[in-house]
């Protein structure tokens, strides 16, 4: 198994290099020159040139790329043009917020999605099935940002139940240990802060997770329906075990195998969706920051973020594959074909 993991990790490296080339090309070759934006309208040609020299932008693109690449392997992703802070610092200051949100969203999406999918499959063609299908259909069709707006309108504006944005009330902010406020609050034993963070995360997690929930519902339903038609379900029933066990154990476990892959893929796409959710809920994560940096041509930061997201994406896929293998004993790492 370790061999398989190592092999998979090694396979990721060329993809990452490719991703870095794509992003680098997009940013340095096609994007507008950042110098006038950074230096402002009144910058002279001389100051612009000096700035470009200082930031290595006058070197040939290939040289620039190799400089960047060697730096990246050493963990140096450059510094932001604007804040002059190292990119890694900029990213890691914001990343926990995004990951916390994405995890909350995928947990919501998985639990609700699997539940709805199972109910829809077990009660196929019933009102539950129809309602579940409709819910899933709306879930994949509704834009994340509009859903976010609706949630704010209803839960914050109308019911005054939940906050409309932010991660936590400033006064309750726990000392940063992990950067995940909910965990940090628990570490402090500060229940009030935990509750407050929880209240803040509910709406954005709902908005962000809705699409994934819909996809997971559909996948679970069809996978479950297929499983329910299998001979071994009849065997289980013939044993005289309770129907709850037949569904919850014998049918659910095999059905979840394809669902794990979907969950993995969805978690990856949540990082993209976070761009929009964060900007609706003023969530101080990496999403909103990314959009700003792209618009300001802050090359080093954008490159760093895209690379990091791609690494996370690949890691999640690996984890999903490993989960897949633990759920399905028929899978052997060694005999597994490359994707």
């Amino acid at each position: 198994m370790l061999k398989y993991v190592i092999k998979r990790v090694l396979m990721v490296i060329p993809v990452m290099i490719g991703v870095s080339i794509i992003v680098f090309a997009l940013m340095r070759v096609f994007s507008p020159d950042p110098a006038p934006i950074v230096l402002g309208q009144h910058a002279t040609i001389e100051t612009i040139e000096a700035w470009r020299d200082a930031n290595g932008l006058n070197d040939p693109v290939v040289t620039q790329y190799f400089k960047y690449l060697t730096g990246a392997f050493k963990g140096d992703l450059g510094t932001s043009y604007y804040t002059k802070t190292p990119v890694t610092e900029e990213i890691f200051a914001r990343f926990p917020a995004t990951i916390e949100l994405a995890i909350a969203a995928i947990v919501f999406a998985s639990i609700v999605g699997i539940l709805l999918g199972v109910v829809a499959a077990v009660k196929k063609n019933s009102i539950f099935d129809a309602a579940g299908s409709l819910f899933a259909l709306v879930g994949v069709s509704i834009p994340i940002f509009w859903l976010g707006i609706l949630l704010i309108m209803f839960f914050s504006g109308y019911l005054h139940l939940l906050p409309s944005g932010g991660r936590i009330d400033v006064l309750l902010k726990p000392a940063e240990v992990t950067g995940f406020y909910m965990i940090d609050a628990l570490l402090e034993g500060n229940w009030e802060a935990f509750g407050n963070a929880l209240q803040h995360i509910i709406l954005p997690a709902l908005a962000l997770g809705m699409y994934s929930m819909a996809i997971i519902t559909r996948m679970t339903r069809s996978s479950m329906l297929e499983t329910l038609g299998q001979d071994y379900i009849r065997t289980a029933r013939a044993k005289g075990i309770s129907e709850g066990k037949v569904i919850g154990k014998h049918a659910l476990r095999p059905s979840l195998i394809p669902v794990t892959t979907v969950i993995g893929l969805q978690f990856g796409s949540l990082l993209g969706g976070a761009l929009l959710t964060e900007s609706v809920f003023s969530w101080p994560g990496i999403g909103k920051f990314t959009v700003d940096c792209i618009l300001k041509s802050d090359f080093p930061v954008v490159q760093g973020i895209v690379l990091l997201v791609a690494v996370i994406f690949a890691t999640i896929n690996l984890v999903a594959d490993l989960a897949y293998a633990t759920l399905d004993p028929r899978i052997k790492y060694s005999s597994k074909k490359e994707r």
Binding site: Q230, D231, Y232, R234, T235, A236, A238, K249, H250, R253, P254, I257, L327, D328, P329, R330
Partner: peptide, 14 residues
């Protein structure tokens, strides 16, 4: 009861 398909009558994941 015993069924006719031994290949598919056992749950593959347990």
């Amino acid at each position: 009861m015993i069924f006719q398909e031994p290949m598919t009558s056992l749950n593959p994941v347990f």
